[in-house]
């Protein structure tokens, strides 16, 4: 499975905006919506990617393997869910901390093309070698 890297950057930029809005407004609903987007992206049905396809019609100059960004979406989903638990239970440090972590990774991806979620793979494997 291959993906357009421009769509990935676009999705990361949109994710950055949404997560920043979550932090500013404190809206658990908006974070829940972002969590749904992460979950859908995990199964290759990224709503942000579809918006990109609707706007940009030119073909990409190169394609990328879909597995690394999907893994990163899973990491994003974990942080979004943790943040959601924080907002719903009003544990403010958890709400802000987890959402900020997701914002941090989304911004690095959007602005620098650096996939922090992908980098987590080897570190997670080093800690849990048998987790197959």
């Amino acid at each position: 499975m291959q993906v357009d890297p421009r769509a990935l950057r676009f999705s990361a930029a949109l994710t950055t905006v949404v997560l920043a809005l979550v932090l500013v407004t404190g809206s658990a609903w908006l974070l829940a919506a972002q969590a749904v987007v992460f979950a859908l992206s995990l199964f290759g049905a990224s709503p942000y990617g579809m918006i990109f396809k609707g706007i940009v019609k030119s073909p990409p100059s190169e394609l990328e393997d879909a597995a690394p960004p999907r893994f990163a979406q899973a990491v994003g989903l974990v942080f979004a869910l943790a943040g959601l638990v924080g907002y719903v239970t009003q544990i403010t440090p958890l709400a802000l901390g987890a959402t900020a972590a997701a914002l941090f990774a989304a911004f690095l991806n959007a602005a620098f093309g650096f996939c922090l979620g992908c980098e987590m793979f080897l570190i997670i494997r080093r800690i849990f070698p048998a987790a197959n």
Partner: peptide, 13 residues
Amino acid sequence: MLSCSVTGLAVVL
């Protein structure tokens, strides 16, 4: 609801 808009904005920045 949490009223963390100022804190939230600071966290974003």
